[in-house]
Nucleic acid binder design. Structure first.
Lengths: 169, 169
DNA sequence: TATTGTTATACTCTATAACTATA
DNA sequence: TATAGTTATAGAGTATAACAATA
């Protein structure tokens, strides 16, 4: 019987919806800010987009991988991977080598030039992430880690058929 | 002198860059999954996009506001607000009332029909957020809250001129 | 028939600037 | 001159489907 206002009946057990406290909104804003700040580093310096960045990092991490493998690991649709790979190949940062056991796919890996850029970029990216996480209280870091895992997991449960496009399909 | 491999010199104090552990990547993937799962609810049911959703929620929260105010509160660029407002107005979910003290702007508010949709949507959205946060250990929730604040803050410091477009400019 | 990868296409979003009208 | 808001436009990114080659 203690309505807060006439037009917004927000029942006793239901708190009001405040955008600035709404978790999906906060996650989006936070991720967007972080992502923008990071792309400053690689976009301006190496003229690559998010997809190319992910291909580069995945190949730097695994040395040799198929396009499909890159897609799975970096949560990107095969068409996006295909185009990103093509772009990076044009710039001679990666090479393809046929897989004789399955001629549909090929193994991709960084060229020395690609490896050079990766070796230059990786420490900068790690440093960026370090600067971010350093502002989070040390006691909170593991909690953040767990929370991100749970939230992603739960979203998929709540909408089972969503495409896990990782924001860059 | 204990290199892990010949080609990836990952110096002793610098851990390797793993995409799946890289915070900006994880944030993007998580936010994208959450966002997609949520839009299932309002996109399919009410045929509105993220910007329209934010306008609706902001007006539901504040009753009356200018376009500029909506932009500030929901982190959207004025052009995006303008178009979202126009779309929602076309559907007669909001009305404009001139501000006689400053004829450049006008006060926006929900019509009864708009309020009806809001009253229907808000509890669903809150319930969605509840279902998400419920999977996060209770002890971790405050930490997540603090972490998101710090991360957003730090990103802006690291790239001072980024536009806080909240993922939907 | 199914899978890997590419290409085409239509569509939506995004960024920017230019503009109107008010102040 | 500056601000609120609108409109135009070019470019980027997106989803889908269709396709070729191989399995």
């Amino acid at each position: 019987m203690a309505d807060e206002s006439a037009h917004r009946p927000a029942s006793a057990d239901q708190p009001a919806l405040k955008l600035e406290e709404f978790l999906p909104y906060r996650l989006t804003v936070c991720a967007s800010l972080v992502s923008q700040a990071l792309s400053r580093i690689y976009c301006e310096r190496y003229k690559i987009g998010v997809s190319e960045w992910r291909v580069l990092v995945t190949l730097g991490q695994f040395d040799m991988m198929t396009a499909k493998g890159i897609g799975v690991h970096s949560q990107m649709h095969k068409t996006k991977v295909s185009r990103a790979v093509a772009q990076i190949e044009r710039r001679k940062l990666l090479i393809r080598r046929a897989n004789r056991d399955d001629m549909r796919e090929s193994f991709l890996s960084l060229t020395p030039a690609g490896r050079e850029i990766y070796d230059e970029l990786a420490p900068i990216a790690l440093d960026f992430a370090r600067q971010l996480i350093d502002t989070v209280d040390e006691a909170d870091r593991a909690a953040l880690d767990r929370a991100l895992k749970k939230l992603a997991e739960r979203s998929v449960q709540l909408a089972p058929d969503i495409v896990n496009s990782g924001g860059t399909r």
